[in-house]
Amino acid sequence: MPMPQQAIAQGFTDLTHQSQQSFKAIMDAMAQPGKIYDAPHKVDNAGALNPVAAMTALTLCDAETLIYLDEALNTPETRQFLAFHTGAATTSDPQKAQFAFLSSAEALEGDHNFNMGNHEYPDQSSTVIIAVNDLANQAGVTLSGPGIETSRAFASSSLNQQFWQQAEANNAEYPLGIDHIFVTETQLAALPRSTKIKLDPAQGE
């Protein structure tokens, strides 16, 4: 592996245990959609990735995965960070990406080309990690389905009506679909394809 030109930010200092703790948070988030978790580790200066997105990348990506980066994240520093710490290659084709890191939900406000999996292998789909400003369990949309006892209120100022319509359409394709992980600077929450979404008509933008 060629040596990087400039110093690359530190990844996990204790790979085994920090990976496990980070995975546990991501797993719990995926198992309880919309529930907000504090990130156990924050990885700073990971190119344009926010610290929790970087934690997610270090936890889940390696040489066996392909990563898509949106324009704002696709910087030499980000690519260098990912290549050095995970060995994962990047792709510009959203269809091929196991993991997509997005600086905002913009790419998902309407049609997108991420991989929805197929009926024989719905697992061959993209997982999309979206940087958001905030996460709250308050009036916004109402989530229900596997992992949620009755229903859960969920909102983020970074996620608009168009995004939620896409997410609703995504759920309608179940068991096909993309899975979402929302990351702030310190927290995370997940929205798998299995979650049903009820848009609150009062919340239109």
Partner: peptide
């Protein structure tokens, strides 16, 4: 495991 959770 994450895929399994997303598609119970």
């Amino acid at each position: 495991i994450l895929k399994g959770i997303a598609v119970p």
